[in-house]
Simulated assay, not measured.
Amino acid sequence: MTAGAVAALAAATWLAREPIADEFIRSQLESRAVPAQYRIDAIGFRSERLSNIVIGDPARPDLTAATVEVLLGYGLAGPYVSEIRAEGVRLHGRFVDGRLSFGVLDRFRDPESTDPFALPDMAVILRDARARRDAVG
């Protein structure tokens, strides 16, 4: 492959980064049957920014966020999420049969696990975040 062909391929990939990211996000959500809406605002080498995020039933979502920025780091194994910054987050949880549930977000957990709910080990910065928990018999 010539240097010009490599440059053209790199340019085409860069121009297609938003549809590629959208397809990746949608496939992850659809593979778990998680209904979601969002807008992609920016995709770069070191960060991705989404806004107007609604996860779950739009009439009663399990999670909403005004904006989420995912910062990427790069290591020997490739890119990884180094930090998440979110603003205007609203999380709705409930206790069902003595376990904390976050509705459709539970589909991202191992269904066989009996471990208590735990957040992933990563840097997260939240601004204007609220969580509501309902008790269900």
Rank of each mutant, 00 (worst) to 15 (best):
G88T: 02
Y74G: 06
E87Y: 00
A66T: 12
G78N: 01
A77K: 08
G93F: 00
P61Y: 06
S51V: 05
V89Y: 04
F95G: 05
N52E: 15
P79H: 09
S82R: 12
N52H: 11
A66P: 01
P61I: 06
T67M: 12
R46H: 10
I84N: 10
D62M: 04
V81C: 02
L76A: 14
D57S: 10
G78C: 02
T67E: 15
G73P: 03
V54M: 07
F95Y: 12
L63F: 11
N52L: 05
S51D: 07
L72H: 14
P61L: 07
F45E: 15
R60D: 15
Y74D: 09
V96C: 05
V96Q: 14
R94E: 09
S47F: 04
V54A: 12
A86C: 09
D62H: 11
T64A: 13
A86L: 07
Y80T: 02
R49S: 14
L50A: 09
F45Q: 13
T64Y: 10
P79M: 12
I53Y: 05
E48N: 08
I53Q: 12
R90A: 15
S82P: 00
V70G: 05
S82I: 01
G88D: 02
F95I: 04
G78H: 03
G44D: 11
L72A: 14
V89S: 08
R94Q: 12
A66W: 00
G78A: 06
P61K: 12
E48A: 15
I84S: 06
L50Q: 11
F45C: 07
L76W: 04
A65V: 02
S51P: 00
N52C: 04
A66E: 13
Y80V: 01
G73C: 03
I55F: 09
D62V: 00
G56R: 04
E69L: 07
L72S: 13
Y80K: 06
S47E: 13
L76R: 11
L76N: 12
S47Q: 12
I84L: 13
V81E: 03
P61N: 07
V70P: 03
A65Q: 03
G78P: 03
N52S: 15
E69A: 13
S82Q: 14
G44K: 08
L50K: 08
E48G: 15
G75Y: 00
R46C: 01
Y74F: 11
G75W: 01
R90Q: 13
G73V: 01
R49A: 15
G93P: 00
D57V: 01
R46N: 14
E83W: 03
G93R: 00
R90V: 07
S51E: 08
I55W: 10
Y80D: 01
I55K: 11
V89M: 10
I55Q: 09
I53E: 10
V70Q: 12
P58V: 01
L71G: 11
E69N: 10
L71R: 14
P61F: 08
E69M: 08
G75C: 07
V70E: 04
I84Y: 05
G56P: 02
R90M: 09
S51L: 08
A59M: 06
E87W: 00
N52R: 12
G73K: 00
L50F: 13
P61S: 09
L63H: 07
A77W: 03
T67G: 09
P58I: 02
S47G: 09
V54P: 03
G78Q: 04
V96W: 09
P61Q: 11
R60C: 06
G56M: 02
G44E: 10
D57W: 06
G78L: 03
L50R: 13
R60V: 05
T64L: 13
Y74I: 07
G88I: 01
